[in-house]
Amino acid sequence: MAAQNIDDVVDGLAGIVREAERTGDRVGYFAALYRQVTVEIRTAIHEGLFDDGPRMDRFDTLFGNRYFDAYDAWRRDRSGPRCWRETFGLLDDADTVIVQHLVLGVNAHINLDLAVAAAGTDPGTDIQALRHDFLLINDILARVVLTVQDSVDALSPLLSLLDKVGGRTDERILDFSIRESRAEAWYNAVLLAGQNAAERAATIERLDTRATVLARLIARPDGIVRPALELIRHTESTDVPAVISHLDGATASTT
Rank of each mutant, 00 (worst) to 15 (best):
T169D: 13
A198Q: 08
D175H: 01
E171T: 01
G194R: 15
N188V: 02
Q195C: 09
W186R: 08
A185D: 05
A197T: 01
A189N: 06
N196Y: 01
V165D: 05
T169V: 08
E171W: 04
E171D: 09
R172L: 08
E180N: 15
G167S: 06
V165E: 03
R182H: 03
T169R: 15
T169W: 11
L192D: 07
I178H: 14
A198L: 14
N196C: 10
L174D: 00
I178R: 02
I173A: 01
N196W: 00
G167E: 07
D170L: 04
R179L: 15
S177F: 06
Y187C: 07
R179N: 10
E184G: 09
R172Y: 05
L174H: 01
N188R: 12
Y187D: 07
K164N: 04
D175G: 08
A185G: 05
S181P: 02
K164L: 04
I178T: 10
G166E: 03
V165H: 07
A189I: 12
K164S: 11
D163L: 04
R168P: 08
Q195R: 04
A197V: 08
R182D: 06
A193F: 00
N188Q: 15
S177R: 01
R168K: 14
R179I: 14
S177C: 12
A193C: 05
G167I: 00
D175E: 02
N188D: 11
E171M: 10
A185I: 08
D163H: 08
D170F: 01
R172E: 03
G194P: 04
G194I: 13
G166W: 11
I173C: 07
Q195A: 13
A189R: 02
S177I: 06
D170A: 12
R179Q: 05
L174Y: 02
V165Q: 03
A198G: 07
R168D: 03
V165T: 05
K164R: 13
T169Q: 12
R179P: 07
L174F: 00
E180W: 08
T169E: 13
D163R: 15
K164T: 09
F176D: 06
D175T: 04
E184S: 15
G194Q: 11
N188C: 03
A185S: 15
A198T: 06
D163M: 10
L191Y: 08
Q195M: 12
D163W: 07
V165K: 06
Q195W: 11
R182C: 09
E184H: 13
T169G: 13
Y187G: 11
A198I: 06
E184Q: 07
Y187M: 10
Q195T: 07
A189V: 09
V165L: 14
S181K: 07
R182S: 06
R168M: 10
R182Y: 04
G194C: 11
A185V: 05
R179V: 07
D170W: 00
L191Q: 13
A183S: 12
N196L: 03
G167F: 04
L192C: 04
F176Y: 12
A198Y: 01
G194D: 13
R182I: 13
K164E: 09
E184F: 11
G167P: 04
L174I: 02
A183Q: 10
Q195F: 15
R172Q: 15
Q195L: 13
D170S: 11
N196G: 06
A197K: 03
L191K: 15
N196Q: 01
I178W: 06
G167M: 09
I173P: 00
S181A: 12
L192R: 07
G166V: 11
D170R: 02
G167D: 02
V190M: 12
